[in-house]
Amino acid sequence: MTRSQILANLHTSLASNRPWLEAVARSAPHSIPPYVMPAADDLDAQFMAELHAIAGMAYPVADERAALTQIAALLADRPSPQIIAWEVEQIGLAGLAALLDQQGVTLATSDLHGTSRSAHLQNMEPLAICISGVEAGIAESGSLVLRHGPGRPRLASLLAPCHIAILRRSQLVRGLGEALALLRNRYGEEIFTSTSNLTLITGPSRTADIEMTLSLGIHGPPEVHVVLVG
């Protein structure tokens, strides 16, 4: 059996090198820093500055009403009869369902596991807008943490050229270490019980594969708009 052969090799190898590896492992603390940049006073400002630096857009708004106005403006600029989105209750922004109704916008079916997989994909492909909620925002890198799962499709931050994310000020953490600790506190050992995927998104899709020259939107959305509420 290959498995037992590989494990047997590992046992033999570790018999000689484990002491050395353990010494290296002990040579520095494994503690995970909650954040790694010099601490900023104002997490909102830090988040927005970082997001801007990587070509994302942030819209600080005072309350849910203002958030809806902002979303309406983004929708108006990119007319799309259907959008790819999390279920409205998963986004958790009061009034969003009514806004979409009023604009005549419906949610595309994104279920790839039924019989019409290919039809659903082809239907979604030309759509202009994705809308998602987030689990947290990371101030020092301008990142969004998305915990996907039922009602929270991955394609709702991926397929269309414009991704709108709704982030609450209260969801901001300072650094990646803090974000991972928050997930652990909130879900314990159950982080992946009902979901197969966590994704960190740090700005728009980018590539520098041709002569190290930046261009946006190679496969994922070229536009990331974060509505920062509260």
Partner: peptide, 20 residues
């Protein structure tokens, strides 16, 4: 500071997940 996308993937799609 971080790469644009970090996917942390645990097994196949769960019941009720639309994609994956």
């Amino acid at each position: 500071k971080l790469s644009v996308y970090t996917s942390i993937i645990n097994g196949p799609a769960r019941p009720g997940e639309a994609d994956g």
